[in-house]
């Protein structure tokens, strides 16, 4: 069955000047799967996300989502094709309120030019707003929807970004260090929220340094080192893999990889 895999990456390569930032990266994520992408700093994890979301054009390789090629699509059309993402550094819009940021995530879902002129900001009871508020609540975020995003705690903003990415009803959600800067309670809330979403059909690809979060959420793990994939298998065995051990040796142990987190 060809559509068993939600995401198929084949022979991905990208060069920046003389530097090969990713080469010959091939992997799949099965439908409803929860896969982690780990690797030392500078391994090319965020670059891989940027290639997949179309920030940079590919040099070589193909990306297929749900059986259809998306690598030829411009960046803005990939979200409508079902690929949504969050960012490593929080990229919420500073001048939009919480609810407006979340509703921006619905942009790819609107149909036709008339829908652009739907006055979503005028009536509080409209459907789009309700759906956004609902999603915020389900993610366990009890914030003033009309307040500014900028004064909120780091962990809250991080999770608002996840909710925004979910508003496009993606097939594949790519999260770039979603647990970085979250306290243990927030981390476990996020993990169970994402598991719920995955059970209703969402496929997840998560870059994360926090290995306990990875163990909790993801059944499979990819390890990237110097732009190459060195491990693709069950999360439980990643620590015992010789290539992975070598990649981290001298820098840090895998189980400790979360130690140098940003926040």
């Amino acid at each position: 069955m060809p559509n068993e895999d939600m995401l198929q990456i084949n022979g991905l390569a990208k060069r920046f000047g003389g530097l090969m930032v990713t080469q010959d990266v091939s992997f799949t994520v099965r439908r409803g799967g929860r896969k982690a992408l780990i690797g030392p700093n500078g391994a090319g994890k965020t670059t891989l996300f940027n290639l997949m979301s179309g920030v940079y054009p590919l040099d070589l390789g193909t990306i297929s989502l749900d059986g259809a090629r998306i690598d030829h699509l411009p960046s803005r059309k990939r979200i409508a094709a079902g690929l949504s993402r969050s960012f490593q550094n929080i990229r919420l819009m500073p001048h939009l309120s919480v609810i407006e940021n979340v509703m921006l995530g619905q942009h790819s879902q609107i149909v036709g030019p008339l829908a652009l002129f739907n006055p979503i900001g005028l009536m509080r009871g409209n459907q789009a707003r309700k759906a956004a508020e609902d999603r915020l609540k389900r993610a366990g975020l009890d914030v003033d929807p009309d307040g500014p995003v900028s004064g909120l705690p780091y962990g809250t903003r991080k999770r608002i970004e996840v909710v925004r990415a979910l508003m496009s009803n993606p097939k594949l959600l790519m999260l770039d260090e979603p647990a970085a800067g979250l306290n243990p309670k927030e981390t476990s809330e996020l993990s169970s929220f994402l598991k719920e979403e995955a059970e209703s059909g969402l496929t997840l690809l998560v870059v994360e340094h926090d290995m306990s979060f990875v163990h909790d959420l993801c059944d499979e793990t990819l390890v990237l080192n110097f732009g190459r994939l060195i491990y693709d298998g069950p999360t439980g065995e990643v620590q015992n893999d010789p290539a992975v051990r070598e990649a981290y040796l001298g820098t840090r142990r895998v189980s400790n990889a979360g130690g140098d987190r940003a926040a």
């Binding site: 960012f87 001048h95 939009l96 900001g121």
Partner: peptide, 19 residues
């Protein structure tokens, strides 16, 4: 209006959001 305000704040993210 929401989309143009998003462009004002961050063109790159607005693009990825489908704007």
């Amino acid at each position: 209006g929401l989309a143009i305000r998003a462009i004002h704040d961050d063109e790159a993210v607005a693009t990825i959001m489908g704007v």
